[in-house]
Write a protein that binds this DNA or RNA. Structure first.
Lengths: 347, 347
DNA sequence: TCATTTTTTGGGATCGCTTGCATTAGGTTG
DNA sequence: CAACCTAATGCAAGCGATCCCAAAAAATGA
């Protein structure tokens, strides 16, 4: 069961292999009638070009790598979907790599992707393999960082606006007249955790207020923490009138706890969550959220990657080595729904 | 910036290309010392074998395809994660294909995957391209169906136990003494929708009861439908004491609606949901669910695929053509939590 | 020691495609 | 009509690995 090769098509069409190749790959130096004829024969025979051979010879695999922590997280699988869709639309396939944020696994994937000759890769990286990523870039492999980017990265980055998003959410609550606003966030070791807290702090400062650490809970990105943190905050701060959940995974634990504690939203507590997880829209009441723009992050990343690939395509010169990669920001959007109101007893 | 090739490694190690190749690919016919020496040189030089060349010559790409509807659905991205992890652990890369359940896109992906020379593929298919999938199988490309499988498929299938899961859930509610059990399900056009309804019906029948269509809501797999369906059921059936949500996406709309309507679980309504979405465990009260075993589905699928790949590896004979592929079932598990109780007023 | 077997290595063809260069066909111009 | 140019095609050389087959080296036995 030997597969049909270009040679077979050429023979059947009565042309040489070169001509057949040019006809199918859209080269301009070929007679239009020849092209049509060859294409027709190829179709009829069910010819499938051998990508491995093509990649070997032309140094173009039409494959891009996607390196990320996991697919459970909503932002991540949204990005993965967007990237895959755009890639497919442009004639590229996507190689999926899940790192669990482990630098060693990440490094191994980078090597493997390079071995597979990917034309480029998009990474939500750990920041620990920037040197290697830069080396790949210098070799002519496109690289785009998403969400996280080390300062030394020579590749362009698409970043979320964590600080701005948190700032907008906190400001909105302050505008409504809230004084005691709880904050459930990620660990300060995580970049997004740091930035969101900074946004919260900045908004308070701008109104001449200070962060009250008794209103702050920081922990891992998971539901169990969300549940515990919520309980602690409620117990410790009976006078808390608003809550900003900046740790998106914690929301899974937080909402049920609030319901269980009989807290009425927004009458007793105003609430804003980070990340627009679909079901938050269906909650009763619908929850106001900060949309971090996962869709746009993926889309822009793919655009930048395609740009790089096209560029290295035409000129063999590797794309701008040395210079630090430009950073693009995707805005965070405050999506107003019904979980926020004026505090019950405004001062 | 030419990459290091096997030739370079061989030269540096003072051996021939054949020897170097054998040393690195774990062939048994080579002196142990030579192997060590060559490996060391390769390491030191940062040699990365060119997979395209390797694939071209050896007909083994070490890439598998994964074809599925989307990554938003929890079962799907869980399966994707498991498959990717297992694949990576076994030295395979995963090419991700998102079809949106569109047969035309699916066909295009199958062609492309074949063109890329994948060693095998796992598909949550539409069932409309079985002929093509069978052809690929005959060509020696491994194929495994997941969740859905056409009868004519020659590839093995890993199926969920939708009917059994629904049967277990309904039986549990009947055991508790419930008489009027609502059903929110998927459209009968979807296979899982059909099967889950069948399980619900069968459980009722076994106790000598009939399906009351006024207790049944069927619709698309989305939150909006879940919200509306819940509202309709509550309005239409004040005497309904239990609810089985067999349409996992609908749950996002259903739960908030129940809360909004002030329905107390499980005192006023017992509830079971299909699919173990993480946050259902954190709900107040924690929701009893049917776990469809997404994790196991992915794991088993990958095992079967690897088996096929190994097999076609040794003997060139294509794996059992003609015969219909064997079907494996992954059991559904009723995970008891706190959302079910005896009906308030048992007869 | 020499013939014979076994183990290890090297030579070179080959996988299927792309691409630089040579060639031919067809058209234009002085 | 020769001379020349352009457009279309063909030839053949690789890309970097693998692997058959033969050669060399090492081990074994008589």
């Amino acid at each position: 069961m030997m597969a049909i090769t270009l040679k077979d098509v050429a023979a059947a069409a009565g042309v040489s292999r070169s001509t057949a190749s040019r006809a199918l790959s859209g080269s301009p130096l070929i007679a239009p009638e020849t092209r049509v004829a060859v294409k027709e024969v190829a179709d009829r025979m069910g010819y499938r070009p051998n990508r491995a051979a093509s990649a070997l010879r032309s140094k173009q695999s039409h494959v891009v790598g996607l390196v990320l922590n996991n697919l459970i997280n909503a932002s991540f699988h949204t990005i993965a979907e967007v990237v895959q869709r755009r890639a497919a639309a442009e004639g590229y396939q996507v190689m999926l790599c899940i790192t669990d944020a482990d630098p060693r696994r990440e490094e191994s994937f980078l090597r493997t992707l390079a071995a597979h000759g990917v034309d480029g890769l998009i990474m939500i990286g750990t920041g620990k393999n920037t040197a290697m990523a830069n080396a790949l870039l210098a070799e002519g492999i496109g690289v785009v960082n998403v969400i996280r980017a080390a300062a030394e990265s020579a590749a362009p980055s698409v970043l979320a606006s964590d600080r701005e998003g948190a700032h907008a959410a906190t400001s909105h609550l302050l505008d409504l007249g809230h004084e005691r606003i709880g904050f459930i966030g990620g660990l300060l070791s995580a970049n997004s955790g740091l930035e969101r807290f900074a946004g919260y702090e900045q908004a308070l400062r701008e109104r001449g207020r200070q962060v009250d650490e008794s209103l702050v809970e920081r922990g891992p990105f998971d539901s169990a923490f969300g549940a515990e943190a919520t309980e602690r905050l409620l117990r410790r701060n009976p006078e808390m009138t608003a809550l900003f959940a900046a740790n998106h995974e914690a929301v899974f634990g937080m909402l049920p706890t609030l319901v269980g504690a009989g807290v009425v939203i927004p009458e007793q507590l105003s609430l804003i969550c980070y990340e627009d997880i679909p079901w938050l829209r269906w909650w009763q009441p619908p929850i106001t959220v900060v949309d971090n723009g996962a869709h746009e992050l993926g889309d822009l990343a793919m655009n930048l990657l395609l740009q790089q690939i096209e560029r290295t395509d035409r000129s063999t010169a590797p794309a701008r080595t040395g210079r630090a990669g430009r950073a693009y920001r995707v805005g965070a959007q405050l999506v107003l729904r019904s979980s926020c109101a004026k505090p019950a007893a405004p001062r």
